[in-house]
Amino acid sequence: MSTYPNTEETIGLIKQLVSIPSPSGYTTRVIDFVEDYFKELNVETYRNRKGGLIATLPGQDTGKHRMLTAHVDTLGAMVKEVKASGRLKIDLIGGFKYNSIEGEYCTIHTADGNSLTGTILMHQTSVHVYKDAGKAERNQENMEVRIDAKVENAEDVRALGVEVGDFVSFDPRVETTGNGFIKSRHLDDKASVAILMQLAKHLKTENKTLPYTTHFLISNNEEIGYGGNSNITPETVEYLAVDMGAMGDGQSTDEYTVSICVKDASGPYHLGLRNHLVNLAKSNGIGYQLDIYPYYGSDASAAIKAGHDIVHGLIGPGIDSSHAFERTHETSLQCTESLLYHYIQSDMAI
């Protein structure tokens, strides 16, 4: 019998995943990594035309399907302008604020396959030169990338192969602590991807037969709104997004339980599925919190908006400082894995 949940293995996978650059639109390499993982488990996979990955575990009932999804794409940026100074203006990919990337190390991925490192800075960074360094607005006009190369003008930059449209990824700075925390950029949603990978591994290792054929969609465009809105089989009844629980003032979500979303910006999630998840958590002693995310949308809500006739839900580990300097705790990962394990073997909610 294998140990499950094995948080050490899950955190190890998270570290690998967050270290692979994958802003929305630049996800082939990380999808390759996940695909290879499933292939080693002899899990059937295919890629959709958008570049996402679907892995399928057959179940006893082939007339009703489940789909679980987590997204492997992350926040990032794209080169907007090569400035005359040799610095780069960037355009953001995903919903976050410029102040959350000030001072961050980054990598510019050129079209010819090369990469250059840099730092995202305010133009008015030096307090010895700019008296308004602390007051200037953190926006596209004032923030720029300083490339780690000897460049004095736009021509020097272009000679390195850098051009408008090149992707920019952010250094994850992943770190674990001795008391169970993992902190890194891109825990949204690579923590959940690792959880689904571990779940599939455990089910295959233990030769578990699922009650329903179940698909794992590793989506690659969630941060821009449409990662999980297609490739849903007609037989799919339940669609469960596994994505981070957002923390902050007025929120119930914490870093030590699984968050079960009851409503986000798209509206309420399916009541029957929500109650089913709550009952599973209660009966199996799994710590959970119910929560509403007012400025949030998931792959499940994208699927509903696309017109799919499904029962939709959303759960995930609690992540502090979402879309910025993220952190969670191993107990939240454990609770999420445990709830998914019991859910995937349970009867349908309706």
Rank of each mutant, 00 (worst) to 15 (best):
T3P: 02
N6T: 10
N6Q: 09
E8W: 07
G12E: 12
I14T: 08
P21E: 02
T27N: 04
T27L: 00
V34S: 00
D36L: 00
N42Y: 10
N42Q: 15
N42K: 13
N48H: 12
N48K: 09
R49K: 15
R49P: 10
G51A: 06
P58E: 15
P58Y: 11
T62L: 05
R66P: 02
L75M: 13
G76I: 00
E81A: 07
E81Q: 15
V82K: 03
K83S: 15
S85M: 04
S85L: 00
R87A: 13
L88N: 03
K89Q: 15
K89E: 15
D91H: 15
S100Q: 12
I101D: 01
E104R: 13
T107W: 14
T107V: 11
I108K: 05
G118W: 05
I120Y: 11
M122E: 05
Q124T: 12
Q124N: 11
T125C: 01
S126P: 07
V127N: 09
V127K: 15
K131Y: 14
D132V: 04
R138A: 08
R138P: 07
N139D: 10
N142Q: 12
E144A: 06
V151Y: 03
A154V: 00
R158G: 01
V162L: 04
E163H: 12
E163K: 13
F170D: 00
P172G: 13
R173P: 08
V174Y: 01
T177P: 06
F181G: 04
S184A: 10
R185W: 08
R185I: 00
M197D: 01
M197K: 07
L199D: 14
A200S: 08
H202W: 12
L203H: 14
K204T: 14
K204G: 04
E206S: 09
N207K: 11
K208W: 08
T209G: 01
L210F: 14
T213R: 03
I218V: 02
N220T: 14
E222V: 07
E223V: 10
Y226G: 02
T236R: 08
V237C: 06
E238K: 12
Y239W: 13
A241S: 15
V242L: 05
G245M: 01
S259T: 15
I260Y: 05
K263M: 05
D264I: 03
A265D: 06
A265Q: 09
G267D: 09
L273K: 08
R274T: 11
G287N: 12
Q289I: 01
Q289D: 02
I292R: 05
Y293H: 10
Y293S: 02
P294K: 03
Y295S: 09
S298Q: 04
A306S: 13
G307K: 10
G313L: 01
I315P: 04
P317M: 06
S321G: 12
S321T: 11
S322E: 05
H323R: 09
A324H: 01
F325D: 08
R327I: 10
T328S: 06
H329Q: 02
H329S: 14
S332C: 05
L333Q: 10
Q334H: 07
T336G: 06
E337Q: 14
L339T: 11
M348W: 06
M348K: 10
I350D: 11
I350Q: 11
